[in-house]
């Protein structure tokens, strides 16, 4: 991956190991990416591929027993690997914030929306209660909540899932962060409101010029909003690059498999089975070597057990990991 100029977030060789019963789970193995200010990076990949762990690792919210290593983990020049708890606290909720998957359980049932919205602002900024509440009302209005002022006194259980996620978004924006990580922010919501919430998030992200990591299963959304795409499989980024390049020229067999899974309006017959990739994800406990996708890959050859090179397509920023130069065994033969 080529260097992004003046990135707000820079990740190199991020590795996460989790001690489990039978040894060590190598949940994330050597991932690299950069994110510029105002840019949107979409991370896609099936569940269990390590997307949430990656975001928690950036936020410094991993469980203590999970071991985090990296060659570089920098947020706006701050070395997050060396930052102590105090330093991390001063960044979290202030300059970087996170929106979680479960709006129903991510708000504290004991406190009002107002209390929870103003908390980050009161923690990080030298503002009074009144100013904090004004800001909370302003943001609730921004996220499309009606009668915003009267919502401050309500408790989470009085709001629907969609409203709660709007509150979570408002909460993440309270301190005008430079980076937002949204981890499947709409997965838990009704299909009908998923699109609304995502559109809202993306609109706000653009308006406020915040860098965003958006984790989602919805490839349609990715195609519309992503500046960059990172395809994650079993703890590795198998393909990364500008959204146009990845969608225009999907190269890694897994990416191609994923894109085949999107139903295309008009082309896909109604009731036709959604394309799926057969096979199961390998265990990541113990020694992991070679390409993790080889067990499901149509293009797999003996070399897939060995070291996998990082390759680039014509666009230098478009990178993938595969033994095949073009991600296809057949292409090589005909070449």
């Amino acid at each position: 991956m080529t260097e992004t100029r003046d990135p707000i977030l820079s990740v190199r060789n991020l590795t996460l190991d989790i001690p489990v019963g039978g040894g060590t789970l190598h949940a994330v193995r050597g991932i690299d990416f950069d994110l510029a200010r105002g840019e949107t990076l979409c991370i896609v990949g099936e569940s269990g591929s390590g997307k949430s762990l990656t975001s928690l690792a950036i936020m410094g919210l991993l469980a203590p027993r999970i071991e985090r290593r990296a060659d570089r983990l920098e947020f706006d020049g701050v070395d997050l690997l060396k930052a102590g708890p105090r330093k991390m606290r001063s960044l979290r909720g202030n300059r970087m914030s996170m929106i979680f998957q479960e709006p129903m359980t991510s708000l504290n049932p004991a406190y009002t929306i107002g209390d929870q919205l103003t908390e980050a602002l009161l923690l990080h900024r030298n503002v009074g209660k009144k100013a904090a509440r004004d800001r909370a009302v302003e943001l609730l209005e921004k996220v499309g909540i009606t009668a915003a002022a009267s919502r401050l006194g309500q408790f989470p259980h009085q709001l629907s899932g969609g409203l709660r996620q709007r509150v979570m978004i408002a909460m993440a924006l309270m301190c005008e962060p430079e980076l937002i990580i949204a981890d499947e922010p709409t997965t838990a919501l009704d299909v009908t409101i998923q699109a609304q919430i995502l559109r809202l998030l993306v609109d706000l992200q653009r308006e406020m010029n915040v860098a965003m990591i958006l984790i989602t299963h919805d490839l349609g959304v990715v195609a519309r909003v992503a500046d960059k795409v990172a395809v994650m499989y079993a703890g590795e980024l198998v393909e990364t690059g500008p959204a146009g390049a990845v969608f225009g020229q999907p190269t890694h067999p897994y990416t191609r498999g994923l894109l085949r899974c999107i139903p295309v309006p008009g082309k896909t017959e109604r009731g036709a089975e959604l394309g799926t990739i057969p096979g199961i994800v390998p265990s990541l406990v113990g020694d992991v070597s070679g390409c993790p996708f080889r067990t499901r890959c149509e293009e797999a050859v003996a070399a897939c057990r060995g070291a996998i090179p990082l390759r680039h397509r014509s666009d230098d920023a478009h990178a993938f990991r595969c033994v095949h130069e073009t991600g296809m065994a057949t292409a090589e033969v005909s070449a």
């Binding site: 936020m59 919210l61 708890p85 606290r89 001063s90 960044l91 979290r92 909720g93 202030n94 914030s97 996170m98 979680f100 479960e102 359980t105 991510s106 708000l107 504290n108 049932p109 908390e119 980050a120 923690l123 990080h124 979570m168 909460m171």
Partner: peptide
């Protein structure tokens, strides 16, 4: 171990 505790930590609340 609940989600809202993680939210509190994500806001930068002290232990």
């Amino acid at each position: 171990s609940s989600d809202y505790i993680r939210t509190a930590r994500a806001k930068g609340a002290s232990e």
